[in-house]
Design a protein around this nucleic acid. Structure first.
Lengths: 341, 341
DNA sequence: CAATAAACTTAACGCGCGTAAAGTTTTTAT
DNA sequence: ATAAAAACTTTACGCGCGTTAAGTTTATTG
């Protein structure tokens, strides 16, 4: 089997001219069925593929799509990224996955290296509070970008995420309906803007239901939420700061730490009568099913968030990067009842 | 600020000839300090960067490095990937991260798309049993590849991983020394070759210590280890198949499922006298600290595995992809004592 | 069947940069 | 100071492919 060096050679072997072969690779449907057949026949025989660097150099727009998540070691983002990847591939694009690993410096570097990738578009889940707003703004001005998960007001052509109010209202109402209204457990300086929205939603829902909101803020920086939740919970439990027998954690990773602390302290958590405490949370983290006890939580609509994100990006790409005004799409949560509350 | 279009323009603005500017970008040290200064001055003023597609098309070898992990939703791999990424960047390379998501088809597709990236080298953690050996063999023949985490005998220029015997011998010896020798809890058809090595090590160590090995094999396919461990443990506990009061799980993710099952069944796990069962494991998964109880486990030498992997790849790249024979490097485990055993 | 449209071929240029050759300037060594 | 070495400049080609223009073949249509 001869080694094909370039499209010229391949075209010769297939018996079709190079411009037509080029056209075929751009869109197989754009050539006559008979020639398509001949090309594909040759393709099977000789295993040639266009040099992506030459292709991308000459095309005005590449088929690359950047996917950026704030913290890939969080399985939640790994799962979303997976879905996004698959959708891009299915649409004929080449996704590249990046993680900011919780650091602003890295997020900026990723934007930088994305620029040189000349992507057709970017799906960006920003760090949130830690993001360098001006850098992201500059980036969005040059590259069609759809934000997801964390909203940065006004940035990107669209935002797709979850409706934090829907999360919290469902968990609060459920806990209230089946027991005592919960305290809210969160980080004092949350990395993610969703956290703030969740706190506000908690306060609002409690007010509406006629209860006194009770927010517990714990210290800690960074993305080691389990550890922060663990330490914070130990402190709270130790100092008896908890004034309710039910707790709503801002997110599942904090809850994982919280439950670990309860276990260590011998506090029985659950909805059964012999339990001292009920703990619920938000996100439906992949591990939420395996906490002890398993975690009652409000689940993201993973599939819809991911699907709508790529959909929005593709629309954006087709409309040459501009047109309509910025849209925000929020998907409601689905309450998942397990043992913890 | 004028927009620079290409190196020609930038060279003119900086007052240096294009070939010299090209040389500078290839290696800043290769030009005279005075000219370097002039280029860098212009660089600050005009913010130009070479078109990576044009660069990669003409360079015989790109600065790309592929990083492939079998399952990115496993935080263990996310962490390793992070370290590998950073090391590559520090060495002046451009890493691209891929996850096979546990599927052979995807692993093969990744290899395919890596080929067109023409990477200088690839760091590959294969699926293991599910890998398409012949495909990987073909790939390694064309691209300098270092395997890590999972060894496929004979494939790749080098393998860097953990010494499974060291893992198991430490956990078994510890459990035996402080209590009863453990049963071994694993999947019947493990996805990963490390699992087989761990079972063999378990049997060997038990023999050596003069105990009867007791291997519990549970059903399940795929990479949802927590769920598999959970179901398997429920079955084992329910049917009273456990003949010891101590269990060594093949890996932490199974152990997470096992512990969840114990919790549900009201079985107290831990090393304290009031506990009915001791559970230990292998890997030191990022969440092992937050299980209930926290998990005693043998920790990978993350940093060394990752560092040695990139080191081996860089050596390989410098030696033009061949030379010496295949090496296997194994790092021992570090026993992490927590509450579960 | 001719007329028209659609798809093709040939020829040629350009993309932005690597790189080589030949000549010139600057630095270093003697 | 002079010779040699090192670094530079100019010139020019090539990489593999997108793309366009002009001419040719094939398919479609009434």
């Amino acid at each position: 089997m001869t080694k094909i060096k370039n499209m010229e050679e391949f075209a010769a072997l297939s018996g079709i001219s190079r411009p037509t072969v080029s056209k075929y690779f751009h869109d197989p449907e754009s050539v006559r069925p008979s020639t398509r057949a001949r090309i594909e026949e040759a393709l099977e025989q000789f295993d040639y593929r266009p040099n992506i660097y030459a292709v991308n150099q000459n095309r005005k727009l590449t088929k690359n799509i950047g996917i950026v998540v704030p913290y890939l070691a969080d399985p939640f983002f790994a799962e979303i990224a997976r879905y996004l990847e698959q959708s891009c591939i299915a649409a004929g694009y080449r996704p590249s996955l990046f993680s900011s690993h919780g650091e602003q410096k890295l997020e900026n570097e990723i934007l930088d290296s994305l620029r040189s990738l000349k992507p057709a578009g970017v799906l960006l889940a920003p760090l949130g509070r830690a993001s360098d707003r001006s850098q992201i703004e500059k980036f969005c001005a040059n590259v069609p970008t759809v934000l997801f998960d964390s909203n940065l007001e006004g940035l990107g052509a669209a935002f797709i995420g979850s409706d934090n109010f829907s999360f919290v209202s469902q968990t609060v109402e459920y806990m209230t309906r089946t027991g005592e209204p919960p305290s809210f457990f969160e980080m004092r300086t949350p990395a993610n803007p969703n956290a703030n929205k969740r706190r506000k939603a908690y306060v609002e829902v409690m007010d509406r239901l006629g209860f006194e909101p009770h927010v517990i803020k714990i210290d800690g920086e960074g993305w080691a939420f389990e550890e922060i939740g663990h330490q914070g919970a130990l402190k709270v439990l130790d100092q008896g700061l908890l004034r309710t027998d039910s707790v709503l954690c801002s997110n599942d990773r904090l809850a994982i730490g919280f439950l670990a602390a309860c276990y260590e302290q011998g506090i029985r958590v659950g909805r059964r009568p012999d339990c001292a405490l009920r703990v619920a949370s938000n996100d439906d983290h992949p591990f939420a099913k395996f906490t002890c006890p398993s975690l009652t939580t409000a689940a993201h609509d993973y599939d819809n968030v991911a699907a709508r994100s790529v959909e929005a990006l593709f629309e954006l790409i087709e409309n040459a990067g501009n047109s309509g005004k910025r849209t925000e799409t929020l998907f409601p949560a689905r309450l998942v009842l397990r043992e913890s509350a």
